[in-house]
Computed example of a mutant assay.
Amino acid sequence: MLAWMLLYFVLAAAGTWLARRYALKRDLLDRPDERRSHAVTTPRGGGIAIVAALLVACVALTIRLPDQALLMAAFAAGLVVVAGAGWFDDHRPTSPWVRLGAHAVAATLFAGAILHVFADPWLAGAAAIAILVLVNVWNFMDGINGLAATQTMLVAFALGAFIGGPWTGVALALAAACLGFLPFNFPRAAIFLGDVGSGALGYAVGAITIMASATQSMPWPLLFLPLSTFLVDAGLTLLMRMRRGERWWTAHVQHSYQVWVRSGAGHATVTFVYMAWTLLAILLMLGLRQSSPLFMLCGVVAWYMSSAFAWWLLRRAAQQRVLRNH
């Protein structure tokens, strides 16, 4: 397994280097403006390297475990659809509704395979919802150096350690590929994930989470814990924008991590704090694994309530610093 992880690390690192050369040649650049949190013009599209490494992992695992061929094929097809939509958007911005349609196609492909293999319509429905939600959450939260890639790496590694079977390989391949990408994106960014990367990471995290539930290797309420960092920030910010009557589907800089950066915090500081938040959630997931269902559910609810309160405190303090700075 370590040898395979090293391969995916190298593939992602080499692919990111090539993607940067391509982006510079094709003028695929994110320039600073009022909707972005960076101050330097930076190439985008580096996430294509993570996608390529994951596709190699799918082929290798299918050869080794042909009984997983249908699920692996569906996962790979959905990944290509999501990444392809993002790749086109990185080259020429497209309608968010067109991208959402592509995400729905990818979600349907994987959900259909889940239904065929497990004959469980509830699990298939959960797969479709998880993929649609997490693809867009990862798109929303990919706004500062290292944030989306580090969160994906932590979640994938945590799930990979407990899923068992072939999907451990997929999860650890994702974690290794993110690690190969990170030297180009954190603490300083030589290239961004781009929509090709952020959407693909959300898709992969959603699919792996569903497989963790399908194999019953982890009680399903606990699977919400590693995702809490992004779900809380994205979810509460979305609700806030909807309450204000804003066009919530458009790009903005209103997430708490973005407000914190505007208040003067460095990208690395914010990313490390969000990593610590997720690591604590993973530790709680492990601690609650053997507890009773009621205690487990109470623990998850308490964690989300605490996280929401921490989100509010962070946002309030950061907004006050922004006002003082101006």
Rank of each mutant, 00 (worst) to 15 (best):
A119F: 03
D120E: 04
A127C: 04
T108G: 10
L100T: 04
F186I: 12
F88Y: 08
V133W: 15
F184K: 07
V105Y: 00
C178M: 09
I131R: 07
A119P: 06
P166S: 15
W97L: 14
I144Q: 00
F118T: 09
T168F: 02
I114N: 07
A124D: 05
D120W: 01
P166V: 15
T168S: 13
A176G: 09
Q151T: 08
A177V: 09
V117A: 14
D120H: 11
V135G: 11
W87C: 09
G160W: 11
T168A: 02
W138Y: 15
W122S: 14
F186D: 10
L134V: 06
L179Y: 04
G86R: 12
W122G: 13
V80Y: 06
D142R: 08
A158F: 13
G160K: 10
R92H: 15
F184I: 03
F140M: 11
V133N: 12
L115I: 11
T94G: 14
M72S: 09
L134Y: 09
A74I: 01
I144M: 01
A104T: 14
F186G: 12
A128W: 04
L179P: 03
V133C: 15
Q151I: 09
L109Y: 06
D142H: 05
P166M: 13
V155E: 04
A130T: 13
A130D: 01
F140C: 08
M72V: 03
C178K: 07
V81C: 05
G146T: 02
A119S: 12
A176I: 06
F181K: 05
F88I: 03
N139T: 07
F75M: 12
V135F: 11
A119D: 13
G86D: 05
L109A: 04
F162P: 04
V80F: 06
M72P: 00
A176Y: 05
A102M: 14
G84H: 06
